[in-house]
């Protein structure tokens, strides 16, 4: 397989999540080659799982007071608190024929190159079904997928040096008493790369890019201006609206 690596572009959370739909649709229509994209954000945000209830996951008053964008993803899974420079997020857009039809197996396969890259910088990580990248000290990242007729979107967010006390103020897992949910989530502690290795964030991204490029014959590329323009439209119509973000 030949692929493209896009490692540029800083966007708001609504535009980032809108890009996921635009790029998945372009690949689905045969208009995009297999692509790995790294994300750069301009502000802290919460990426909410598609099926999660807004008020169950975020501290509603706190995110309002601090102007934190809460954006519902196209993909299922759990809420992630993200800060510019403190997490590493990447997306893969692939045709179905390059991905295992078995969903559980496909998470393991599509995480493996990243796990190998993290090990190369000294992190003791492994895939933990269904969709976690784990370190002995806790969960370092999580993945989520969306399938369309011809395309698979697989995106992953990992903690580089996330502000955990702030995360616990933003997400309701930090509350003392949020029923069983809090207990389950709090047990899954977040592990941060900086607590275990000296590698800089650009070093980690470089390791990810070179591992991916070696394995998949990839070259650098960029997003076309019409892709970005379409994402900005979708962000305005959907991912930046309460109608979408607070639907549940």
């Amino acid at each position: 397989m030949t692929a493209r690596i896009v490692d540029a572009g800083t966007y708001s959370e609504p535009v980032q999540q809108a890009l996921e739909g635009v790029l998945t649709d372009r690949l689905d229509a045969g208009e995009l080659e297999p692509t790995l994209r790294f994300w750069y954000r301009d502000a802290p945000a919460v990426a909410l799982g598609r099926f999660q209830a807004y008020a169950d996951e975020v501290a509603v008053d706190y995110v309002a007071e601090h102007d934190i964008d809460v954006v519902r993803r196209l993909t299922g899974g759990g809420a992630m608190y993200v800060q510019p420079g403190a997490v590493i997020t990447y997306s893969l857009y692939l045709p179905h024929e390059q991905v295992s039809a078995d969903i559980e197996a496909s998470y393991a396969e599509l995480d493996q190159w990243a796990i190998d890259a993290l090990r190369s910088v000294g992190l003791d990580v492994s895939h933990e079904p269904l969709n976690d990248i784990s370190h002995p000290e806790g969960k370092i990242g999580g993945s989520a997928q969306l399938r369309t007729d011809n395309a698979v979107l697989h995106h992953t967010t990992m903690s580089y040096d996330l502000d955990i006390p702030e995360m616990l103020r933003v997400l309701r897992i930090g509350e003392e008493k949020v029923s069983d949910k809090a207990i389950k989530s709090a047990e899954k502690r977040v592990a941060r790369m900086t607590d275990h290795v000296d590698a800089s964030r650009p070093d980690v991204i470089e390791a990810l890019k070179s591992t991916f490029a070696d394995r998949f014959d990839a070259e650098a590329g960029e997003l076309s201006s019409d892709v970005v323009a379409e994402a900005r439209e979708r962000a305005a119509d959907r991912f930046g609206t309460d109608a979408w973000n607070r639907q549940l």
């Binding site: 799982g49 598609r50 099926f51 999660q52 209830a53 169950d56 196209l74 993909t75 299922g76 899974g77 759990g78 809420a79 969903i103 269904l130 989520a144 997928q145 969306l146 399938r147 549940l248």
Partner: peptide
Amino acid sequence: VRLTGDFFLEPP
């Protein structure tokens, strides 16, 4: 009925 959570569903 309202079904919510951190599960996955295809199609959404």
